[in-house]
């Protein structure tokens, strides 16, 4: 570029981003009907993604909840088998490390069954009186050994000191009978362990299921992207004259591109937000009717749910921007003279 002409001709400045956002927002608002159709495409895609994510979370949560309830019920039936009704009896509890969810539920149920007293070693729970390791078992009908840490710290014989009948139930290691002599302690696992082969097969099934879900969700998202791209291309062709006019008025190609990218990302954002809400609520309600609402809503890991929602919104917005790249470039390449065409 010759230095001579720099006196008379300057370089066009880039417009602030805020201005581009204003213009695109207005464009969306005015072309509300069309925008709504485009947005609903995104809503469908993201709702599908989100409902799959939510469905998986719910299934997992329900399965977990069920497994826990099964464990508690099994433990309770074992308790009944050993000592009959808990009511009016002294119960000893020893915990190693933190209580598991199942442990806590079991303890709640035991306390609720109105025993004479519940003494606890290493347990802080409502209705449980703290006691020393060798005092906890005194006069107790049953010793419950709970917690997720190792059991080696204190021998069972110490915990069982002073028990009339030395009976212990361990939530992790299985049933433990205690006779009068310490040496007669023996352990029987009461949870059947799956064989390696079974575990392998279950893993394979889970992987196939995951792949299928990815495939379907991926296809639906692809359809969404194509839908948005198509709608934006239409919108570009519709605005040939407007874009040409803007260029005649001094708009840079980059500004036109930004305009469409912003419009698309706003469409993606709005569509994803709505899609996420719809996609999360539908499975929650459906599973709620199929199982029970308190089970579904109570067992839902909300942190994970919100994390997936955030992820889905990001995915939706990014995909909308991706869809806009071609239409936006197409629009930005338009020559200013296209504004002069008298017919649209």
């Amino acid at each position: 570029m010759g230095s001579r002409m720099e006196r008379t001709i300057g370089k066009q400045v880039k417009l602030p981003f805020r201005r581009a956002v204003q213009i695109s927002l207005r464009g969306i608002r005015i072309r509300f009907g069309r925008s709504l159709v485009t947005v609903s495409g995104v809503v469908l895609g993201i709702a599908f993604l989100m409902s799959n994510l939510t469905g998986q979370l719910i299934k997992k949560a329900i399965a977990h909840e069920r497994a826990q309830r099964d464990t508690v019920n099994m433990m309770l039936s074992l308790v009944r088998a050993e000592v009959g009704s808990v009511s009016g009896k002294k119960i000893a509890v020893a915990a190693f490390g933190a209580l598991t969810e199942a442990d806590r539920l079991l303890l709640e149920q035991v306390v609720a069954a109105e025993p004479e007293s519940v003494r606890g070693f290493g347990v802080g729970a409502p209705g449980v009186t703290p006691a020393a390791a060798d005092k906890v078992g005194e006069g107790a009908a049953l010793l419950l050994v709970l917690g997720e840490a190792g059991r080696s710290e204190i021998p069972l014989s110490t915990l069982a000191t002073g028990m009339r009948q030395r009976v212990a139930l361990d939530s992790q290691e299985g049933r433990v009978y205690a006779g009068t002599k310490d040496s007669s302690l023996r352990r029987e696992p009461f949870f059947g362990k799956e064989s390696d082969e079974q575990i392998q097969r279950m893993r394979q099934q889970a992987r196939a299921e995951r792949f299928r879900t990815f495939w379907i969700v991926g296809i639906s998202l692809l359809v969404t992207v194509l839908g948005v791209a198509n709608a934006l291309l239409m919108s570009v062709t519709e605005r040939f004259r407007e874009i040409g006019t803007m260029k005649c008025l001094g708009a840079l190609s980059a500004f036109i591109r930004t305009l469409f990218l912003i419009e698309s990302s706003l469409i993606g954002l709005i569509g994803s937000l709505v899609g996420v809400v719809v996609g999360a609520l539908l499975p929650l309600i459906a599973y709620g009717f199929a199982y029970r609402f308190d089970l579904v809503f109570g067992s839902m890991p909300y942190g994970l749910l919100f994390a997936s929602a955030g992820g889905a919104v990001v995915v939706g917005t990014l995909l909308a921007v991706l869809a806009a790249i071609y239409p936006a470039n197409f629009a930005s390449r338009m020559v200013p003279a296209s504004a002069l065409r008298s017919t649209v």
Binding site: M1, M5, G10, K11, L249, G250
Partner: peptide, 17 residues
């Protein structure tokens, strides 16, 4: 007095503006 063939996109936009 400016030869428009010599202008780049930014300068053309400036001129049109």
């Amino acid at each position: 007095q400016v030869d428009i063939a010599q202008l780049d996109a930014y300068e053309l936009a400036w001129l049109r503006c």
